[in-house]
Amino acid sequence: MPPLSRRAVGRATLARQFLLRRVRRPVAEVVTHLAGLQAQTTHSWYVGLQNRIDGLVPDEAGALLARGELVRGTLMRGTLHLVTPEDFARLRPTVQPVITRNLAHSAHGRATRGLDAKEIADAGRALLREGPLTPGELGARLAERWPGVPGGDLSHVVRGLVPLVQVPPRGVWGASGPPAFAPADTWTGRAVADAPDPDALFLRYLAAFGPATVRDVQAWSGLTRLREVADRLRDRLIALRGEDGTELLDLPDAPRPDPDAPAPVRFLYDFDNLLRGHADRSRVVSAEDLGRLATRNGMPPATVLVDGTVRASWRAVRTRDTAAVEVVPFAPLSPAQADEVVAEGLELLGFLEPERGGHEVRFAAPV
């Protein structure tokens, strides 16, 4: 096959991310296909579902979290992800080395160096089996056993080594609450898998993010040394080439649309999968515009896709009676593109703020 242009690679990824066309599928099915949504913020990930699922009702999605049919727990790259209980059980052992490494290199890991980490983890697990605890509550209970060690550091050891999920109401649409944790197996009734399965993770990644390089899979998962996994799977994959000659691995039957396939405007949330799934993100954002997304506090702006690439940032602005979306283009948009941004922005406001009037999409001067 001829090399794939960046546009062709981008269209393939957008198709798999359900960003070329919204789908009418159950929320849990979409979340499973995407191998989870990054969900370290409590509610912004609902926008990630809204721009992928036709007719999504946020209360219904939130009810899945309340009922335990979806969970939020630490997975890829050591960050919170929204997944099904089945996927948490499958994925956590595979990415556990990443979480363990992050803990060891953190201030919490250094503060507890010399202590028996397994003993701390077992003690924390026993406490959490009695009922969910906030990090502060867990740390205080552990500090009774390890006096002189900060409870926050002890709590982080447990959170790093024990598969935990954040429990409702935190993260439920229209609700709030402090972060509180429970062991995944007791909360979901599903035991965590006995062994890692990097082959399955690699294939799941390509289904949701491909075509991609080994470095891309490593960037998304946080794992290293996945070249041997790729080599082991080669008889189940096809090898393509990017326009720069880079090898791109893919599933044989995965969608690869025409590079000129229309890509509608979509409002991405701050931690959307699309911008965190590859080592080389040039398929959806230029190097210059990627620099605009870097922030000192690690909280990136929400962004707008126009013709399949990031072309603006956005934020919601609310008053007592009105709601607006403020869009900051990175370069001038054509009149047709601006009209499409307005239409999609109004649809987003109808999702976020159905009870408020005065919906409006405003444009700031390009930056």
Results as ranks from 00 to 15, higher is better:
I53M: 07
V47N: 01
L64Y: 08
V57G: 00
R266S: 02
L115Q: 12
S313F: 01
H278F: 12
E340R: 10
D253M: 08
A28V: 09
L248T: 07
A219R: 10
V265K: 01
A219G: 09
T186A: 05
L161H: 15
E228T: 13
T100M: 01
T84W: 00
R190G: 01
N273V: 12
P211S: 04
R7K: 09
R52M: 09
A123D: 02
E243L: 07
L237P: 03
A195Y: 14
L251V: 03
P332T: 11
S313H: 03
R236Q: 05
F271V: 13
A207S: 10
L333I: 05
H33E: 12
A184S: 10
P259Y: 06
K118L: 08
V361R: 11
T42K: 12
D244C: 08
L4C: 05
S176D: 15
G291K: 09
G210I: 00
T13C: 06
G78A: 10
A66H: 05
K118E: 11
V98H: 06
V83C: 12
D185A: 14
A312T: 06
L305K: 03
L203I: 05
R24S: 07
L223A: 07
D307H: 12
L352R: 13
L226Q: 07
P97D: 12
P58A: 09
A180K: 02
A123F: 02
R11S: 00
G242D: 13
F18P: 02
L154A: 04
L70M: 14
V192W: 15
W314T: 01
D59M: 10
D307C: 09
A254F: 14
V327D: 03
R101E: 08
A143F: 07
F88S: 07
R241A: 14
D258N: 13
V83F: 15
A331V: 00
D59Q: 14
I53Y: 05
L223C: 10
